[in-house]
Amino acid sequence: MPKTRIACWNVQKGQHLAAAADYLNAWRPDVWLAQEILPAHQALFELATAMRCYPASPTLNSPNDNAVFIREGGVFDVSAEYLHPSAPWHPPADLAVRSANTDSLSASNSISLISVHLCGFSASTRLQEADWCTTLAAPGQLAIIGGSWNSYPADEGPDSDLWKHLLSEDNPARDPSLYMGRTYAENCVRHTDDRPDRIMTDAGFIDVAQFAHQSLDRLHAISPTVGHQDKDRQGGRWRVDRVYISARLAPAILDVEIGEVQTVGNLSDHLPILITLDTEKTAALMRARPDTESAANAKAP
Rank of each mutant, 00 (worst) to 15 (best):
P172E: 14
L136I: 01
T192S: 07
E156I: 00
L136A: 02
D159L: 07
S168R: 03
C188L: 05
P158Y: 00
D193E: 15
L142K: 04
Y179T: 08
K164L: 10
R195N: 04
M180A: 12
G140Y: 02
T183C: 02
A154F: 06
I145H: 13
W149M: 12
W163N: 09
W163K: 08
S177D: 11
S148F: 04
Q141E: 15
L166M: 08
L166G: 00
D155R: 11
G140L: 03
K164M: 05
P153Q: 04
R182S: 12
R182Y: 02
P153A: 05
W163E: 02
A137M: 01
A185G: 04
S160H: 09
I145L: 14
N171V: 10
L166H: 11
W149L: 13
G157Q: 09
G146I: 08
R182F: 10
G147M: 04
L178I: 06
S168Q: 10
S168W: 06
R190C: 01
T183M: 02
L167M: 14
L142I: 03
N150D: 07
A154Y: 10
P158D: 00
S148C: 02
C188S: 14
R174I: 08
S148K: 02
I145R: 14
A143W: 02
A154M: 05
G181P: 14
A143R: 07
A154D: 11
T183W: 01
S151H: 09
Y184C: 12
L166V: 01
L167R: 13
P196H: 02
H191T: 04
D155E: 13
H191V: 01
T192K: 04
P158Q: 09
I144D: 00
K164S: 11
D159R: 08
L178G: 05
H191F: 14
V189P: 00
A137D: 11
M180P: 00
L142V: 04
W149V: 00
L162H: 15
G140S: 05
S151M: 02
D197L: 01
T134R: 15
R174K: 15
G147Y: 07
A138G: 15
L136G: 01
Y152K: 03
T135H: 12
W163T: 15
L136K: 13
L162T: 14
Y152D: 03
T134H: 08
D170C: 01
A137G: 09
Y152M: 04
D155Q: 09
W149T: 03
L162V: 15
G157M: 08
G146N: 06
L166K: 12
E186T: 08
P172Q: 11
P176M: 07
R190W: 13
W163Q: 03
T135M: 10
L167V: 13
